[in-house]
C-alpha cells in the first residue's frame, strides 16, 4: 500500500466524514483525529472507515452523546468523533473522569483525549478491555493494545492519572492506510464533489482570456 502524507490522510478523512453526513466542523475534527492516529502508527483511517460505514448518514445531532454520569448514545453505538469533540470541548473545565458506554471504534477517542490532556496540562488514561493508553501534551504511552481495532467497546474510561505509564511511541510523518479502508474513505469523500457540468467547467473555474500566449 502506498503511504499517504499526513495532509492527504487528514483531507481524505475530513471529506469522508462530511460525505457520510457529519457537519463540516466535526468532519474537520475527524480529519485531525485520523492525522494524529496515523502519525502515531495507529490504524486511524481504518477506524474512521469502519465508523462511517456503520453510521452512514446518521444525522449529526443524533450522533451527539447524552453527557450524564455515563456518556451514552441516543440510539445505537456512541460516535467517537462526536463524543471525542465534546470531551475536548469541556477540557477547559479541568481534568475529570468520563465513562462512555457502548462506544464505536474507541481508538478514535484517543486524539481527542490527547487534545483535552494537552489543554489542561494533565495526563489522561483512555482504557477499554484489551487497550490502555496514557496521553499528555506531546506524549503517548501505550499499555496493552490488542483491542486497539475494536469496532466497539461496552465501556471506555478516560480519567486523569499522575504520570504516563507504558511504552512510548515516536511519531511519524506517513499514513499507511489499508487499501479497503482507503477505498471506503474515498467513496465517502466522493460525495462531497459536485457532478461536473459543462457550464461549471467553463464558468466555475474561471476561463477568460487565452492562456496559451
Amino acid at each position: 500500500m502506498t503511504p499517504l502524507s499526513l495532509g492527504e490522510a487528514e483531507a481524505l478523512a475530513r471529506k469522508a466524514a462530511r460525505g457520510a453526513g457529519l457537519d463540516w466542523g466535526t468532519a474537520e475534527e475527524a480529519g485531525r483525529a485520523v492525522r494524529w492516529l496515523c502519525a502515531h502508527q495507529f490504524p486511524g483511517g481504518e477506524a474512521l472507515a469502519g465508523l462511517l460505514i456503520a453510521s452512514d448518514r446518521v444525522p449529526p445531532a443524533r450522533r451527539a452523546p447524552v453527557c450524564g454520569m455515563v456518556w451514552r448514545a441516543r440510539a445505537g453505538c456512541l460516535c467517537p468523533v462526536t463524543a471525542g469533540a465534546a470531551l475536548a470541548d469541556r477540557a477547559g473545565a479541568g481534568p475529570h473522569a468520563v465513562t462512555l458506554a457502548d462506544l464505536a471504534w474507541p481508538l478514535l477517542l484517543l486524539p481527542f483525549a490527547q487534545a483535552a490532556a494537552a489543554r489542561h496540562g494533565a495526563t489522561l488514561r483512555v482504557a477499554w478491555p484489551g487497550f490502555r493508553a496514557d496521553v499528555a501534551a506531546g506524549a503517548l504511552a501505550l499499555g496493552p493494545a490488542e483491542a486497539g481495532e475494536a469496532a466497539r467497546a461496552a465501556e471506555v474510561t478516560c480519567r486523569p492519572v499522575p504520570v504516563p505509564q507504558g511504552e512510548g511511541r515516536p511519531r511519524g510523518y506517513r499514513a499507511a492506510l489499508r487499501p479497503a479502508a482507503r477505498a471506503a474513505l474515498e467513496r465517502f469523500a466522493a460525495r462531497t464533489y459536485a457532478p461536473a457540468t459543462q457550464a461549471g467547467r467553463l464558468a466555475g473555474a474561471g476561463a477568460g482570456l487565452t492562456d496559451n500566449d
Binding site: 466542523g25 474537520e28 445531532a61 451527539a64 462526536t82
Partner: peptide, 17 residues
C-alpha cells in the same frame, strides 16, 4: 456553555472555532 449548544446544533462547530 457553548458545548451544550454544539451537542444540539453541531452545524455551528466550525463557526464557533
Amino acid at each position: 456553555p457553548v458545548a451544550e449548544l454544539l451537542l444540539r446544533r453541531p452545524e455551528h462547530r466550525a463557526a464557533v472555532r
